[in-house]
């Protein structure tokens, strides 16, 4: 930076139109997905497929937030994978616990 710490002479750059437009598009996509989720919630019969559809759409939304808003997609690969790989444990926790829960339910009823 050209200026020193104490002199408050700030070089303000103009807005990055391209980047801002992309951010709003991301928001629009998330809004569309949420609306689609609502439509599914009220039109589709309850069942396994519906649950998986919701999970899929949620993961898409999560990818938008983490990738674009939190900027992880553009970070160094080491950082990207350091955050993503540990999430495997969450997947395993989900599988193990729900399996256990169903077993408890079967034993009780």
């Amino acid at each position: 930076m050209a200026h020193s710490e104490e002199t408050v002479h700030i070089n303000v750059l103009p807005p990055d139109k391209e980047k801002i437009k992309k951010l709003w598009m991301t928001a629009l996509w998330m809004l569309i997905i949420t609306i689609v989720e609502f439509i599914i919630a009220f039109t589709m019969d309850h069942g396994q497929f519906k649950v998986w559809l919701f999970i899929g759409l949620t993961i898409v939304k999560a990818a938008f937030i983490v990738g674009e808003f939190m900027h992880l997609r553009y970070e160094v690969k080491v950082l990207f994978w350091s955050i993503l790989i540990p999430l495997v444990f969450i997947v395993w926790m989900l599988v193990a616990f729900v399996y256990e829960g169903v077993a408890i339910g079967n034993a009780r009823f």
Partner: peptide, 20 residues
Amino acid sequence: LIMSSVTMVLAVEAGHRMDR
């Protein structure tokens, strides 16, 4: 909450440009 996330990322963008 989604909208407030958008305004937050716009604040970050403005910060990169030093636009107080």
